[in-house]
């Protein structure tokens, strides 16, 4: 059984691309392969920048990934320290990012003292700290309650405006995709492959309200759902317990 088959994804620098697809379509696997965390059992993965070199990346994981044994500052500086960046430069970057993600005053808090939403801000800041070519986000808001999720989406829109990173973002949620994306990539399952790419035309800088009250929102939502429906149905009819 192929998990992913001939997936070819081109992302323009500075674009926010969102992968949506049914559970088990391999979106997370694709993301992890781009990150170099998973390797295909057969075939190969190539991630290249325009100049042919591999892009640097940083992943924001779903759920627990902020180290409980480091306080907020050290969590954010984790990647920088590993790269051997000196203390002063590290402190400057951390100071800037703490402001960027809205965690001012929580410098020395332990993760267990923060809410789930605040911990995800730490994870985002930690990924941004190493200034990667691509920011890879694997359902980063999946474990949050709906309202916190909206807040973090707005927050992320703001952060993106300020940093203009190239982002590949994985989600189940169609409206999360429409809120955040420049382009939505619909993936199908068994084997995982790219079915459709849908540009999202909402102007930036965006707000969630503007996106949702935009006349094109409903039509786009339906278009994405149209592309997904058969895949979701097909994946639901398969017996449980299959490979992820």
């Amino acid at each position: 059984m192929l998990a992913l088959d001939a997936v070819d994804l081109t992302v323009e620098p500075g674009r926010f691309v969102v992968l949506v697809g049914p559970s088990g379509c391999g979106k997370t696997t694709l993301l992890r392969m781009i990150a170099g965390l998973d390797h295909p059992t057969s075939g190969s993965v190539q991630a290249t920048r325009g100049d042919g070199r591999p892009p640097s990346n940083a992943v924001v994981f779903q759920g627990r990934s902020v180290f409980p044994w480091l306080h907020v500052r050290d969590n954010i500086g984790f990647g920088l320290k590993l790269k051997g960046i000196g203390r002063r430069e590290r402190d400057q970057t951390i100071d800037r990012l703490i402001e960027t993600v809205g965690l001012g005053g929580f410098d020395h808090a332990w993760p267990h003292q923060l809410s789930e939403g605040m911990r995800q801000r730490v994870a985002i800041a930690r990924a941004l700290a190493v200034d990667p070519d691509i920011l890879l986000m694997d359902e980063p808001f999946g474990a949050l309650d709906e309202q916190t999720r909206y807040l973090l989406q707005e927050e992320l829109l703001g952060i993106w405006e300020r940093t203009r990173k190239t982002v590949v973002f994985v989600t189940h949620s169609i409206d999360e995709a429409l809120t955040l994306a420049d382009e939505i990539v619909i993936m199908g399952a068994r084997p995982g492959r790219i079915l459709q790419r849908i540009p999202v035309p909402f102007e930036r800088p965006r707000t969630m309200e503007a996106v949702r009250s935009d006349a094109r929102f409903a039509a786009l939502f339906n278009r994405v759902w149209d592309g997904l429906r058969d895949e979701v149905l097909a994946s639901r009819q398969r017996p449980l317990g299959g490979a992820r």
Partner: peptide, 9 residues
């Protein structure tokens, strides 16, 4: 996931 983070960096 903690190990993944370390590996990713």
């Amino acid at each position: 996931s903690y190990r993944d983070v370390a590996r990713n960096f």
